[in-house]
Design a protein around this nucleic acid. Structure first.
Length: 234
DNA sequence: CGAGTTTGACCTGCGC
DNA sequence: GCGCAGGTCAAACTCG
């Protein structure tokens, strides 16, 4: 048994030239008109089409969202129930809300925002260009991250990709170790961290870092699925 | 024998 | 500069 809260999406991508993409504080997914939320565990083509429409309507697109959502629906159908849908009043939105149970991930987003604000303040306060340069040079390039919380007996959820564990670490003030995984695909630098929530060991927190440059390795039921899926991955 | 996991050592960033 | 904590490496180990 497992269920998932997709808790946040944060974009913070700092290239060598320090070009920064604005962060997204969560996101609302425009719902195409005439579209209805599929029943739990729905595996049909219309669902995949709906997910495609939803994810393609996002701007900027959160990394790996459609993969995750599709993997959630296809492989962990019950996880889909935690996505909060908002209908009526002409609003066609699927909202991923900032709720209390999502505080862990939102904390990470807040940290990022704080860092950004610090930089802004430094500019205002007239910190020397040399110091700024040093500070920026020290900052690591961070890949887009996407994390969600899942109630699950197993630590590693089947998301369609193949992962190799490269480390495990006991994190301070937690009883459960954090595991580090890398995508086994050549040239794919996506990583994920898996840990259990200290307050509730039934909850598994999975954090993806980076974007896959390939399709999931899972066999799909038919070639039609395959071709339709190919349109989802960014 | 190759692929994946384990685990101690090492590296790096950050706060004091 | 030092110590701490998180992240990564890589040799040893396990398993199919």
């Amino acid at each position: 048994m497992s269920r998932t809260n997709i808790v946040n999406e944060s974009l913070f991508d700092e290239e060598e030239d320090h070009h920064e993409i604005p962060m997204q504080m969560g996101f609302n997914i425009p719902f195409p008109p005439n579209m209805t939320l599929p029943p739990l565990g729905c595996h049909d083509q219309s669902l995949k089409g709906n997910i495609s429409a939803m994810s393609s309507s996002l701007s900027p697109q959160p990394p790996n969202f459609s993969q995750t959502l599709l993997a959630t629906v296809l492989h962990k159908p019950r996880q889909f129930e935690d996505l909060t849908s908002t209908f009526g009043g002409g609003s066609h939105l699927l909202s991923l809300n900032r709720s209390g149970v999502n505080s862990w991930a939102w904390g990470e987003v807040s940290d990022c925002l704080m860092g950004k604000r610090r930089d802004d303040n430094d500019n205002e306060l007239g910190v020397s260009a040399i110091k700024m340069k040093k500070m920026k040079a020290r900052r690591k390039v961070r890949e887009p991250r996407f994390c969600f919380k899942t109630m699950s007996d197993v630590d590693v959820l089947d998301d369609g990709y193949k992962w190799r564990k490269y480390g495990q670490k006991v994190v301070k003030n937690t009883q459960h170790p954090r595991s580090y995984y890398r995508c086994t695909q050549d040239n794919c630098r996506v990583k994920k961290r898996v840990e259990r929530l200290a307050e509730d060991p039934r909850m598994v927190i999975t954090t993806y870092e980076g974007r896959h440059v390939h399709s999931p390795s899972n066999e799909l039921e038919d070639s039609q699925n395959q071709s339709q899926l190919a349109n989802f991955f960014w």
